[in-house]
Simulated assay, not measured.
Amino acid sequence: MGYDLGRFQGDVDEELICTICGGVFQEPRQVSPCEHCFCDECIQEWVKHQQTCPVDRNPITPSSLGPAPRILRNLLARLKITCENEQFGCQAVVKLDGLDSHLSQCEYNPKRPVLCEKGCGLEVPLDELPDHNCVQELHKVINTNEKRIQGLEERIQEQDTCIGHLREEVSILKELVRSFRTSANGIGTPDETERAIQTGRWLASLKPAKVKRWGGMISTPDGVLQNIIKRALADSGCPQHLLSELMANAHERKWPPGLSTLETRQLNRRRYEQYIAKRVPGRQAIIIMASDNEHMGESMIVEPGIVMVFAHGVE
């Protein structure tokens, strides 16, 4: 709907008046190709019921509506209009393009937000302040925030699920690639493919590991300790075909050259942080899979991976 003509100072050109509502254009829109202009709200409502221009009855559609010419918008901007809060005492006369800015600060605006001084500190429309109940409004704020938090938690859960699926797919693809590379003819057999899929799914279910104290590494775990780690891996769902291979690589005698002796481990200790590792659930141990650590080179990784046991320092 347009602005009431009676609010303007001086004469208003008839070219600036909407023929639908009879008021001065508010957010004008132009119809093509006839180039007639109307208030946006007026013409939007019009085309819902009639598909012809209100002036010349030429066919129009919602897609026919476009922005009003710049010269028309400039003419509107220069018009002077009284504040709509005149009935409440405001005597201001402003240019039309400054009306919104004035209304947001007008001290006579009954909807102007003010701070409640009763204790809640909420912003309240001026005309609602006498009936404002701090306790009720704070309950509304709490309920709204709780709903937002619940919505965010649901979105996070959905995203976590999606990320989990993506991690599983990536792990499976990595294991498939590894399987094909190690296969004698470069093409994985159905059994090798199935084992790669099982391995990828299992790895995706494990949490990433962070080692804070590499000095706590036990490079020569005894049989009892190895059995404890083996049982933890089995309980986590480690595929049987992989379990024995990993546990065989839990001792320094099966580690790659860069880790096989105390001397080489000390030389390469700066590289440890580059490992991508998985946590053995419930134990101070990690798994460093070859498929995740190709960037480390052959001197720091072996197929299918390494198990490292620690006295402490694994998160």
Rank of each mutant, 00 (worst) to 15 (best):
E137G: 07
P54Q: 02
K118E: 14
S260R: 14
P190E: 02
K111M: 14
N227M: 12
C120G: 06
Q266P: 00
D222K: 06
V24T: 04
M1E: 09
R73L: 14
D191F: 09
P281V: 12
E169S: 13
R213P: 01
C106H: 04
L262S: 14
N145T: 11
T261A: 00
K95W: 00
D4M: 07
W202P: 10
F88M: 11
V135L: 03
G98D: 14
E15C: 07
R167E: 14
E175Q: 13
I306L: 15
P54E: 03
V211Q: 06
S244V: 09
D127C: 14
C116Q: 05
C162I: 12
I71M: 07
E84V: 05
K210Y: 10
G282H: 04
E146D: 11
R195I: 09
L138M: 15
K95A: 11
C162Y: 05
T193Q: 10
D292E: 14
L173Q: 11
G119W: 05
R148N: 08
I71S: 09
T82E: 14
G200W: 06
P208H: 07
K147M: 03
G98C: 12
L129T: 02
Y275S: 10
G6W: 11
W255I: 03
F38P: 00
I286Q: 01
Y275R: 09
V55W: 05
Q26K: 15
V124A: 04
R195S: 13
E123I: 01
E27Y: 03
E315A: 11
E298S: 12
Q50A: 10
L5K: 13
A92P: 05
V307F: 04
D4S: 12
T199P: 02
A68K: 07
A232E: 01
V309S: 05
L96R: 08
G23S: 02
D235C: 05
N145W: 10
E194Q: 12
D40T: 06
G6M: 12
L115H: 11
